[in-house]
Protein backbone atom coordinates (compact mmCIF):
# COMPACT_ATOMS: atom_id res chain seq x y z
CA UNK A 1 0.00 0.00 0.00
CA UNK A 2 1.00 3.60 -0.08
CA UNK A 3 0.67 6.48 2.30
CA UNK A 4 0.57 10.09 1.23
CA UNK A 5 2.84 12.81 2.60
CA UNK A 6 1.68 16.39 2.33
CA UNK A 7 4.68 17.66 0.39
CA UNK A 8 6.16 17.38 -3.07
CA UNK A 9 9.41 15.41 -3.26
CA UNK A 10 11.22 18.60 -4.29
CA UNK A 11 9.80 22.10 -3.66
CA UNK A 12 7.95 23.78 -6.55
CA UNK A 13 7.25 27.49 -6.24
CA UNK A 14 6.46 28.96 -9.65
CA UNK A 15 5.55 32.64 -9.57
CA UNK A 16 4.75 33.33 -13.22
CA UNK A 17 2.13 31.71 -15.47
CA UNK A 18 3.51 30.33 -18.73
CA UNK A 19 1.03 28.35 -20.83
CA UNK A 20 3.60 27.64 -23.56
CA UNK A 21 5.92 25.99 -21.04
CA UNK A 22 3.01 24.03 -19.55
CA UNK A 23 2.09 22.60 -22.96
CA UNK A 24 5.62 21.22 -23.34
CA UNK A 25 6.08 19.99 -19.78
CA UNK A 26 2.72 18.15 -19.72
CA UNK A 27 4.42 15.50 -21.89
CA UNK A 28 6.23 14.30 -18.78
CA UNK A 29 2.83 13.90 -17.09
CA UNK A 30 1.14 11.73 -19.70
CA UNK A 31 3.46 11.51 -22.71
CA UNK A 32 5.29 8.48 -24.13
CA UNK A 33 8.22 8.82 -21.71
CA UNK A 34 6.32 10.52 -18.92
CA UNK A 35 6.06 9.80 -15.22
CA UNK A 36 2.69 7.99 -15.24
CA UNK A 37 4.06 5.51 -17.77
CA UNK A 38 7.23 5.11 -15.71
CA UNK A 39 5.41 4.39 -12.45
CA UNK A 40 2.88 2.00 -14.06
CA UNK A 41 5.71 0.20 -15.88
CA UNK A 42 7.72 -0.57 -12.74
CA UNK A 43 4.78 -1.13 -10.43
CA UNK A 44 3.30 -3.60 -12.95
CA UNK A 45 6.54 -5.38 -13.78
CA UNK A 46 7.44 -6.02 -10.13
CA UNK A 47 5.03 -8.94 -9.70
CA UNK A 48 6.93 -11.44 -11.84
CA UNK A 49 10.47 -10.75 -10.66
CA UNK A 50 11.62 -13.72 -8.60
CA UNK A 51 14.55 -11.94 -6.92
CA UNK A 52 13.06 -9.92 -4.03
CA UNK A 53 15.94 -7.43 -4.16
CA UNK A 54 15.12 -6.47 -7.74
CA UNK A 55 11.37 -6.68 -7.25
CA UNK A 56 11.78 -4.34 -4.28
CA UNK A 57 13.91 -1.94 -6.30
CA UNK A 58 11.19 -1.76 -8.97
CA UNK A 59 8.64 -1.03 -6.23
CA UNK A 60 10.82 1.73 -4.72
CA UNK A 61 11.55 3.40 -8.06
CA UNK A 62 7.90 3.05 -9.16
CA UNK A 63 6.91 4.73 -5.91
CA UNK A 64 9.30 7.61 -6.51
CA UNK A 65 7.88 7.99 -10.03
CA UNK A 66 4.45 8.58 -8.49
CA UNK A 67 5.98 11.47 -6.56
CA UNK A 68 7.46 12.73 -9.84
CA UNK A 69 4.03 12.50 -11.47
CA UNK A 70 2.73 14.78 -8.74
CA UNK A 71 5.66 17.16 -9.25
CA UNK A 72 5.03 17.46 -13.00
CA UNK A 73 1.30 17.93 -12.36
CA UNK A 74 2.16 20.62 -9.83
CA UNK A 75 4.39 22.42 -12.34
CA UNK A 76 1.65 22.34 -15.00
CA UNK A 77 -0.94 23.52 -12.49
CA UNK A 78 1.17 26.38 -11.18
CA UNK A 79 2.00 27.47 -14.74
CA UNK A 80 -1.66 27.64 -15.77
CA UNK A 81 -3.75 28.37 -12.68
CA UNK A 82 -4.21 32.12 -13.24
CA UNK A 83 -4.33 32.35 -17.04
CA UNK A 84 -6.59 34.96 -18.61
CA UNK A 85 -8.67 34.17 -21.73
CA UNK A 86 -6.33 36.44 -23.72
CA UNK A 87 -3.25 34.56 -22.53
CA UNK A 88 -4.93 31.24 -23.31
CA UNK A 89 -5.64 32.29 -26.89
CA UNK A 90 -2.25 33.93 -27.47
CA UNK A 91 -0.26 30.94 -26.17
CA UNK A 92 -2.07 28.28 -28.17
CA UNK A 93 -3.38 26.74 -24.94
CA UNK A 94 -6.93 27.14 -26.28
CA UNK A 95 -7.00 23.68 -27.89
CA UNK A 96 -6.26 22.05 -24.53
CA UNK A 97 -8.46 24.48 -22.62
CA UNK A 98 -11.58 23.72 -24.61
CA UNK A 99 -11.54 20.08 -23.45
CA UNK A 100 -9.90 20.29 -20.01
CA UNK A 101 -10.26 23.93 -18.88
CA UNK A 102 -7.37 24.32 -16.36
CA UNK A 103 -7.49 20.67 -15.30
CA UNK A 104 -4.35 18.55 -15.48
CA UNK A 105 -4.89 15.58 -17.82
CA UNK A 106 -2.35 12.93 -18.89
CA UNK A 107 -1.45 13.65 -22.49
CA UNK A 108 1.67 14.14 -24.60
CA UNK A 109 2.69 17.62 -25.73
CA UNK A 110 1.20 16.81 -29.14
CA UNK A 111 -2.20 16.04 -27.59
CA UNK A 112 -1.98 12.22 -27.71
CA UNK A 113 -3.70 10.79 -24.60
CA UNK A 114 -1.73 8.62 -22.20
CA UNK A 115 -1.96 4.97 -23.13
CA UNK A 116 -0.63 1.76 -21.55
CA UNK A 117 0.70 0.79 -25.00
CA UNK A 118 3.60 3.14 -24.24
CA UNK A 119 5.18 0.59 -21.89
CA UNK A 120 5.52 -3.15 -21.49
CA UNK A 121 5.22 -5.59 -18.64
CA UNK A 122 6.69 -8.62 -20.37
CA UNK A 123 7.05 -11.03 -17.48
CA UNK A 124 10.71 -11.60 -18.33
CA UNK A 125 13.13 -9.87 -15.94
CA UNK A 126 15.95 -9.41 -18.46
CA UNK A 127 13.59 -8.03 -21.09
CA UNK A 128 11.88 -5.76 -18.55
CA UNK A 129 15.11 -4.39 -17.08
CA UNK A 130 16.44 -3.48 -20.52
CA UNK A 131 13.19 -1.63 -21.20
CA UNK A 132 13.46 0.12 -17.83
CA UNK A 133 16.98 1.34 -18.54
CA UNK A 134 15.93 2.60 -21.98
CA UNK A 135 12.90 4.30 -20.41
CA UNK A 136 15.07 6.23 -17.95
CA UNK A 137 17.28 7.44 -20.80
CA UNK A 138 14.27 8.47 -22.90
CA UNK A 139 12.85 10.45 -19.98
CA UNK A 140 16.26 12.06 -19.41
CA UNK A 141 16.36 13.10 -23.08
CA UNK A 142 12.86 14.59 -22.77
CA UNK A 143 13.93 16.62 -19.73
CA UNK A 144 17.01 17.78 -21.66
CA UNK A 145 14.71 18.90 -24.49
CA UNK A 146 12.48 20.74 -22.02
CA UNK A 147 15.51 22.47 -20.46
CA UNK A 148 16.57 23.76 -23.88
CA UNK A 149 13.25 25.53 -24.25
CA UNK A 150 12.71 26.87 -20.71
CA UNK A 151 14.59 29.67 -18.97
CA UNK A 152 12.46 30.59 -15.91
CA UNK A 153 14.60 29.43 -12.94
CA UNK A 154 11.43 28.55 -10.99
CA UNK A 155 10.69 25.89 -13.65
CA UNK A 156 14.27 24.91 -14.50
CA UNK A 157 15.11 24.08 -10.88
CA UNK A 158 12.59 21.21 -10.33
CA UNK A 159 13.02 19.99 -13.94
CA UNK A 160 16.75 19.59 -13.34
CA UNK A 161 15.99 17.63 -10.18
CA UNK A 162 13.73 15.28 -12.16
CA UNK A 163 16.36 14.92 -14.90
CA UNK A 164 19.00 13.92 -12.36
CA UNK A 165 16.72 11.25 -10.90
CA UNK A 166 16.43 9.59 -14.33
CA UNK A 167 20.20 9.16 -14.32
CA UNK A 168 20.24 7.67 -10.82
CA UNK A 169 17.42 5.27 -11.71
CA UNK A 170 19.28 4.20 -14.87
CA UNK A 171 22.32 3.43 -12.72
CA UNK A 172 20.27 1.38 -10.22
CA UNK A 173 18.51 -0.60 -12.95
CA UNK A 174 21.90 -1.33 -14.47
CA UNK A 175 23.09 -2.66 -11.11
CA UNK A 176 19.91 -4.74 -10.80
CA UNK A 177 20.50 -6.27 -14.23
CA UNK A 178 24.01 -7.17 -13.14
CA UNK A 179 22.75 -8.73 -9.90
CA UNK A 180 20.28 -10.78 -11.94
CA UNK A 181 22.86 -11.92 -14.47
CA UNK A 182 25.34 -12.82 -11.75
CA UNK A 183 22.93 -15.61 -10.82
CA UNK A 184 22.55 -16.94 -14.36
CA UNK A 185 24.66 -19.08 -16.62
CA UNK A 186 26.94 -16.46 -18.12
CA UNK A 187 27.09 -18.36 -21.40
CA UNK A 188 23.37 -18.05 -21.84
CA UNK A 189 22.02 -14.73 -20.54
CA UNK A 190 19.42 -14.01 -23.15
CA UNK A 191 18.03 -17.31 -24.36
CA UNK A 192 15.43 -17.89 -21.64
CA UNK A 193 13.12 -16.24 -19.14
CA UNK A 194 14.51 -16.42 -15.58
CA UNK A 195 11.00 -16.04 -14.13
CA UNK A 196 9.60 -19.13 -15.87
CA UNK A 197 12.36 -21.37 -17.20
CA UNK A 198 14.33 -23.54 -14.73
CA UNK A 199 17.23 -21.72 -13.10
CA UNK A 200 20.51 -22.18 -14.95
CA UNK A 201 22.91 -21.14 -12.26
CA UNK A 202 26.53 -21.60 -13.19
Amino acid sequence: MWQYEKRTQYPIKIKKNDAKAAQIIISQYGGPDGEIGASLRYLSQKFTFKDPRISGLLNDIGTEELAHLEMVGTIVHQLTCNLTPEEIKASGFDKYYVDHTLGVWPQAAGGVPFTATEFQSKGDPITDLFEDMAAEQKARTTYDNILRMISDPDIVDPIRFLRAREIVHFQRFGEALRMLQDNLNFKNFYAFNPSIDPPMRK
Binding site: E5, R7, E64, V168, E175
Partner: peptide, 15 residues
Amino acid sequence: SFAMDDTRLFLDTHP
Protein backbone atom coordinates in the same frame (compact mmCIF):
# COMPACT_ATOMS: atom_id res chain seq x y z
CA SER B 1 13.51 12.66 3.05
CA PHE B 2 15.34 12.99 -0.24
CA ALA B 3 18.58 11.81 1.33
CA MET B 4 16.65 8.72 2.42
CA ASP B 5 14.92 8.30 -0.99
CA ASP B 6 18.27 8.33 -2.75
CA THR B 7 20.06 6.15 -0.20
CA ARG B 8 17.18 3.65 -0.18
CA LEU B 9 17.74 2.92 -3.87
CA PHE B 10 21.50 2.73 -3.30
CA LEU B 11 20.98 0.22 -0.49
CA ASP B 12 18.63 -1.84 -2.67
CA THR B 13 21.60 -2.67 -4.88
CA HIS B 14 24.31 -2.35 -2.19
CA PRO B 15 22.66 -4.02 0.84
